[in-house]
Design a protein around this nucleic acid. Structure first.
Length: 242
DNA sequence: GCGACAG
DNA sequence: ATCTTGTCGC
C-alpha cells in the first residue's frame, strides 16, 4: 500500500505522511515498532544508475547541523550533484533513534538534488538495529527509494572473525537472526557493517558496497575503507562556512 | 541490576 | 559526532 514516493518528493507529497517528526523518544520508539513490518527485503527492482550518499554533522556546542547529499553515477563514481543544508538539530542523539535526528534534515538535502537517486546509501545501520528499523530503513521507507546502510561500527549484533582480504565477510547476528554483514572493503583494515534498508537484499547490498568502495588504479586494492558516496557526503558536511 | 550503545 | 599534531607506512 505504500504508494512509493513515500513521504512525497522526499518530504511531503503523500496524502497522509507516515508520521510527524516532532516526537518524544518514547513516541519515536512506538513509530519504529509500527513501521518496521513495512520494510521490504528483496532484490532492488530495475537498473541502478545513480546513488546518493548522505551524511550529517553536528558542531560540538552548536545548535545547528549540516546535512549533505551527493549524487553519483554508479558505473563511473563521478559526482553529478552536491547539496548541503544547515538546519536546527531536531532531536537528541539517542542510540537506536538516530533516524529522528538525521532524517528531517537529510530530506531537505535530498530535495535539492536534480533527480531522484536509484538508491540511497547512509552512514549508519539499516536492518541491523534492535527493532530492525535503523536509519537506512526509515529513510528508504519514507522516500519510497531502495536504500542500504553502511556503518563504521556496530549498534547491535556480533560476528565471527573474517578473512584479511578485501571482500571477506562474516554474518552479523542479533537475536538469532542475521541482520547484516561485516564486510572487509580494504585489505587489512577494520570492516564496515552493511545492512539492508528498504527494497534491497543483503547480497545485493554487499556487491553494491564493493562496487562503491573505490579501487586503486592497478592492483585490485581498495583506496579507502568507506564507500565513495558516503565519503563525498562526509567531506561536504565536515567543512564549515558556505 | 549492569553494561552496551549507529552518529 | 566532536576535541586535535605529528607520525609511521605504502
Amino acid at each position: 500500500m505504500d504508494t512509493d514516493r513515500g513521504g512525497g518528493k522526499f518530504t511531503g507529497r503523500r496524502a497522509a505522511p507516515l508520521h510527524g517528526w516532532a516526537v518524544t523518544p518514547r513516541e519515536a520508539l512506538a513509530i519504529q515498532r509500527g513501521l518496521a513490518p513495512k520494510i521490504v527485503v528483496a532484490p532492488p527492482v530495475g537498473s541502478l544508475r545513480t546513488v546518493a550518499g548522505l551524511d550529517v554533522s553536528v558542531g560540538r556546542f552548536e545548535k545547528t547541523c549540516r546535512a549533505g547529499a551527493v549524487l553519483l553515477e554508479i558505473d563511473t563514481l563521478r559526482v553529478l550533484a552536491r547539496v548541503r543544508v544547515t538546519r536546527p538539530v531536531p532531536f537528541p542523539y539517542v542510540p537506536g533513534l538516530l533516524s529522528f535526528r538525521e532524517i528531517p534534515v537529510l530530506l531537505d538535502a535530498l530535495a535539492g538534488l536534480p533527480s531522484v537517486p536509484d538508491v540511497l546509501v547512509v552512514d549508519g545501520q539499516g536492518y541491523a538495529h534492535p527493532r530492525r528499523f535503523g536509519l537506512a530503513c526509515h529513510l528508504g521507507l519514507w522516500c519510497g527509494i531502495p536504500s542500504i546502510g553502511v556503518a563504521k561500527s556496530i549498534l547491535c549484533g556480533v560476528h565471527g572473525p573474517l578473512g584479511p582480504a578485501r571482500g571477506s565477510v562474516a554474518p552479523l547476528v542479533h537475536g538469532g537472526e542475521t541482520v547484516g554483514v561485516a564486510l572487509r572493503t580494504r585489505a587489512g583494515v577494520k570492516p564496515v557493517y552493511v545492512s539492508v534498508g528498504h527494497r534491497f537484499d543483503l547480497d545485493s547490498a554487499v556487491s553494491l558496497v564493493l562496487r562503491l568502495a573505490v579501487l586503486r588504479r592497478g592492483s585490485g586494492q581498495a583506496r579507502f575503507r568507506l564507500v565513495e558516496p558516503v565519503r563525498q557526503a562526509h567531506a561536504l558536511v565536515s567543512t564549515r562556512g558556505t
